[in-house]
Design a protein around this nucleic acid. Structure first.
Length: 447
RNA sequence: UCCCCGAUAGCUCAAUGGUAGAGCACGCGGCUGUUAACCGCGGUGUUCCAGGUUCGAGUCCUGGUCGGGGAGCCA
């Protein structure tokens, strides 16, 4: 006994002339007199199933007619190639076994608003474009982990419940942890992953991270997934070489394996084909000069063509600045050596220029913003402890972190890549919320 | 937190301060090639909530709720 189908829709081309049993859901149905057309979806694809009244019993024909949108069903029939079918193949149905005739389905093939779709997100994920996006997301993750595993990185997972704010910058979600006081949901695994780096040399963590910022933009989620490699005996140049190889490998694997999904999304893949090492590198100093030169001539920035604001050296970039900078290159661009004052406490200062640190943000093209932030970490214990104090942080909270510098410290570097931003860029989707099954946003926690 | 915008049928949206509407979805009927099918027939509402102005409010005013877009922050 088995309930499994004899094949899946994405394999249907190998079964032309044979009889198969498929199991799936009714994506759409239309009746035309003595014909019923069923678009059947099984998760791997969609195929047209044709029920001819004359070829089946009255019971089978009635069963076919009874199916509503998203009803679950097992369908048996012969596979044939037919130019009139959307996928080129169709099933000449001989048997229909409804598993469940669905109630009236709220999401129709017509247009819907964002709020309605987000309220029905648990059903929305069945739709073709969401399906393609989530499959690309899965491929991005598989490619990222595959690249790191192939390069001898060990997955080293870090805690989500943490006793203090790791970087002491953003707002965190707090929860009560038994009798031990307040715990916080991790905003990054970086500090912990550094301990694994000292153990294994090359490690990465991958998991959800949480930011309690009241961000309301198409680039932000309060819960998002980040992959954070960390490498011993590596300076910031080594770090950037790793990043450009990493990102290029992800993009090229998605292009190779998910072209059908990219086509479903109408993604222009010509821009992605350029994503190969090396990526351009510009310094923060040069970026400021470029921004101010452009701002002086009244340059405007997509998407709303507002004027590019000028910037003072020492200020962090705003979103329009990043969009402007990224638009000048045909692949992601590193902006390196930001002012020390605007970056986290653990970043290694540049020799002879203590006002800037060894770090880089990787800006994706087409307005998708920063997809990677990375740096060389301070490996000297005295300097690190001084920085912790300068930032108003309690060194006692970082005792274990300082220990890493006490016992065999080495120069090391690492970065974090946001899975959703990377996926949004590669898939070319407007809003980051579509790249995760259940987006958590300022005004959304359901479903 | 700040700025802008919105809320009317299950959905997407109309409606000079004067009878609450359409398309889709859904139901029934028709059609042997539909691709968001088409044709005919069918019913539908706390106009987000609470006040106010007015002979009369979906429409104007005040406050609130919920949501969307952006800023800042960042992945």
């Amino acid at each position: 006994m088995t309930l499994l189908p004899t094949t899946y829709i994405n394999q249907i081309g190998q079964h032309v002339g044979a009889t198969v049993t498929l199991a799936g859901w009714v994506y759409n149905k239309t009746e035309k007199g003595k014909l019923v057309f069923i678009q059947l979806r099984d998760g791997t694809g969609t195929i047209q199933c044709v029920v001819f009244r004359k070829n089946v019993s009255e019971e089978v024909f009635a069963a076919a007619k009874s199916l509503t949108q998203e009803s679950s069903v097992r369908i048996t029939g012969g596979v044939r190639a037919d130019e009139r079918a959307p996928s080129g193949y169709e099933i000449d149905v001989t048997a229909v076994e409804p598993v469940h005739v669905a109630e009236e389905y709220p999401i129709t093939p017509k247009e819907h608003g964002t709020e309605f779709l987000m309220e029905h997100r648990h059903l929305h994920v069945r739709s073709a474009k969401q399906h393609a996006l989530l499959r690309i997301r899965a491929e991005v993750i598989a490619a990222a982990e595959g690249f790191l595993n192939d390069n001898d990185f060990i997955r080293y997972d870090t805690p989500i419940l943490t006793p203090v704010a790791a970087e002491g910058t953003t707002n965190l979600f707090a929860t009560q942890y038994f009798d031990l006081g307040t715990a916080y949901l991790a905003q990054t695994g970086q500090l912990y992953v550094e301990s694994g780096m000292m153990s294994f040399g090359k490690v990465y963590c991958f998991g959800p991270t949480f930011r309690a910022e009241q961000s309301k933009t198409r680039r932000h989620l309060t819960e998002f997934w980040m992959i954070e490699p960390e490498m011993a005996f590596a300076d910031q140049d080594d770090n950037m070489v790793l990043q450009e190889n990493f990102v290029s490998a992800i993009v090229q694997r998605v292009l190779a394996r998910r072209s059908a999904d990219l086509a479903t999304l109408d993604r222009d893949v010509t821009a992605l084909a350029n994503v190969k090492p090396p990526f351009p590198r510009i310094s923060y100093d040069e970026a400021v000069e470029r921004i101010n030169a452009a701002a002086a001539t009244g340059t405007t920035v997509q998407p709303d063509d507002k004027p590019l604001p000028a910037i003072m050296w020492g200020e962090d970039f705003g979103s329009p600045h990043e969009t402007f900078l990224a638009a000048q290159f045909d692949r992601p661009v590193f902006v390196v050596n930001y002012p020390t004052a605007v970056k986290a406490f653990y970043m290694q200062p540049v020799d002879g220029r203590p006002e800037v640190v060894h770090c880089a943000d990787l800006l994706a093209p087409e307005g998708y913003g920063e997809i990677i932030g990375g740096s060389q970490r301070i490996h000297d214990m005295q300097l690190l402890e001084a920085r912790i104090r300068e930032h108003g942080l309690n060194p006692e909270h970082y005792r274990w972190y300082l220990d890493l510098r006490r016992y065999g410290t080495v120069p090391h570097s690492g970065f974090g890549m946001g899975i959703e931003r990377c996926t949004a860029w590669i898939a070319g989707t407007h809003h980051i919320r579509d790249t995760i099954a259940f987006p958590r946003q300022l005004y959304r926690i359901y479903p």
